[in-house]
Design a protein around this nucleic acid. Structure first.
Length: 223
DNA sequence: GCGACAG
DNA sequence: ATCTTGTCGC
């Protein structure tokens, strides 16, 4: 398999123009989804997890895991091409489609404004929000490690997202609009989904499912 | 040239 | 992302 980054770059630039940064979903949110990707067999298998939670009580409605052969390497700035195939496969198994989807990674806080959250949002035609644990690009002023503190993430005179301290003494999260949501709403929804942990509930559950963490193991045991 | 670099 | 023990702090 050969990779033409120049071509993929063109693809991103074209798709980026289709991203909608306004709140085009006005219905009440009753279900929120979360996605995360993990790897198995030394990276040869991509494992995608999608979870659907009720809002605002965050009960697990359903979850799905898809495993496919990994067919693209990790290249900063091109993460979506590595992960979206598995995510789409998992998405097709979802019965109760959520009103809003939290994606692990950047939304428009990306060099070409098409992080995985935006890319997936376009492919699924869904409102998405990017929740990343690390910065990909942009600059921001240092902020206190106090839950609730937030500062804009900027790139060339443009706000591309937010840097949010979601829990005391924890590293901040990098929040950005994915698709069909405004930057303000992206931040608002993340705050509405925080429950005392660093990660908002949809992301926390998806992470636990994709990586088979205690939260998920205990949940299965109780089922 | 050098550092930075989602998962 | 993943491989992994103990350890420090709230």
């Amino acid at each position: 398999m050969s990779i033409n980054l120049e071509q993929l770059r063109q693809t991103q630039q074209t798709l980026a123009k289709q991203v909608i940064l306004t709140d085009a979903f006005c219905q009440s949110v009753k279900f929120i989804g979360g996605t995360d990707v993990g790897f198995e067999d030394d990276g040869h298998v991509t494992k995608a997890a999608i979870v659907v939670l009720t809002y605002p009580d965050f009960k697990v409605v359903e979850y799905h895991i898809a495993r496919i052969k990994t067919q693209f390497p990790y290249i900063p700035g091109y993460l979506s091409f590595r992960e979206y195939p598995a995510l789409i496969e998992a998405w097709q198994q979802v019965t109760q489609k959520p009103d809003l989807l939290f994606v692990d990674g950047q939304g428009v806080a990306h060099p070409r404004r098409l992080g995985i959250a935006s890319h997936l949002g376009l492919l699924l035609d869904m409102p998405t929000i990017g929740v990343a644990k690390k910065k990909l690009c942009g600059q921001y002023e240092s902020l206190p490690k106090q839950a609730g503190s937030v500062t804009p993430l900027q790139d060339k005179q443009e706000q591309i997202g937010w840097v949010l301290c979601s829990k005391n003494n924890c590293n901040p999260l990098f929040i950005s609009a994915g698709h069909r949501v405004s930057q303000d709403s992206a931040l608002k929804w993340v705050n509405l989904c925080l429950r005392g942990y660093r990660l908002p509930e949809p992301t926390r559950w998806a992470d636990a499912i994709a990586s088979n963490k205690p939260l998920f193991k205990n949940f299965k045991h109780a089922q």
